[in-house]
C-alpha cells in the first residue's frame, strides 16, 4: 500500500465521512438526552451517505438520507417527543457488576479480530457475480439501471419478500399501538 498515492480529495472525503460517522456514533452512546442521541445518529447517517457517494453508490446515498434521516430518525424523534421521555433519560444503574467492561472487552476483541482478519485477507477482487455477468459496476444513472435490473432478476424473490415484510411490520405496529378502551379501564 505504501508508495501508492491517493488523491487528496478522496482522502479528504474519507476523513470527513469517518469523522461524521465516528463522532456521531460515539455521540449516540455518550449523550444522555435521547434527542441529542438521535441527532448524533443523523450525523452518522450522513457520514455513511458521504461514504456511499465516495464509493459511487449515489443512489443508495440518496435513499439513505430519505429512508434513514427522512423517516426512521423522524420516527424516533416522534416517539421520544410523543412519550415525553426526553429529559429524564439518563444512564441507569448497571444490573450486573462489570457488565459494561465485559461487553466492552468482548466487542473490542471481536472487532479487533475482525479488523485483523479484514486486513490479512485478500479478497477476490474481480470475482464476478452472477448478477452483472462480469459487467463492471456503473456509476451515475447507469448504476440505477443496474440496481433495478438486479432487483427484478437476481433478487426478484427477495424483493417480493420485502412486501411481506412491510405488511407484517405495518400490521404489527398498528396492533401494538392500538389502544383499547375496555382494557385501559381494566388497567386503571
Amino acid at each position: 500500500m505504501i508508495g501508492v498515492s491517493y488523491s487528496i480529495g478522496a482522502v479528504l472525503v474519507f476523513v470527513t465521512a469517518a469523522l461524521l460517522i465516528l463522532v456521531g456514533a460515539v455521540g449516540v452512546l455518550a449523550v444522555r438526552n435521547p434527542v441529542h442521541a438521535a441527532m448524533s445518529l443523523i450525523m452518522t447517517l450522513f457520514g455513511v451517505a458521504v461514504a456511499f457517494v465516495a464509493q459511487s453508490a449515489d443512489f443508495l446515498a440518496a435513499v439513505q438520507v430519505i429512508v434513514y434521516a427522512g423517516a426512521i430518525v423522524v420516527l424516533f424523534l416522534f416517539v421520544i417527543m410523543f412519550l415525553g421521555v426526553d429529559r429524564r433519560e439518563g444512564v441507569r444503574v448497571e444490573p450486573l457488576v462489570g457488565q459494561r467492561a465485559l461487553a466492552g472487552l468482548g466487542v473490542g476483541l471481536t472487532v479487533a479480530g475482525l479488523i485483523v482478519l479484514l486486513a490479512r485477507s485478500h479478497w477476490v477482487s474481480g470475482a464476478m457475480s452472477v448478477s452483472t455477468n462480469g459487467a463492471p459496476l456503473a456509476t451515475g444513472s447507469g448504476n440505477v439501471a443496474q440496481l433495478g435490473t438486479a432487483v427484478f432478476t437476481t433478487y426478484l424473490y427477495a424483493f417480493e419478500a420485502t412486501a411481506a415484510l412491510l405488511v407484517i411490520a405495518v400490521v404489527g405496529a398498528i396492533v401494538l399501538a392500538r389502544r383499547e378502551r375496555a382494557l385501559d379501564e381494566e388497567a386503571a
Partner: peptide
C-alpha cells in the same frame, strides 16, 4: 441466498415480536 434468508428471518422475527407483545393483560 443469504439476503433471502435474512428477509425470511426478519419476516418471521418481526411477526413474532408483535405476537409476543399481544397479551395486554
Amino acid at each position: 441466498d443469504l439476503v433471502v434468508i435474512f428477509l425470511g428471518l426478519e419476516i418471521l422475527s418481526i411477526g413474532l415480536y408483535v405476537l409476543a407483545a399481544l397479551d395486554r393483560h
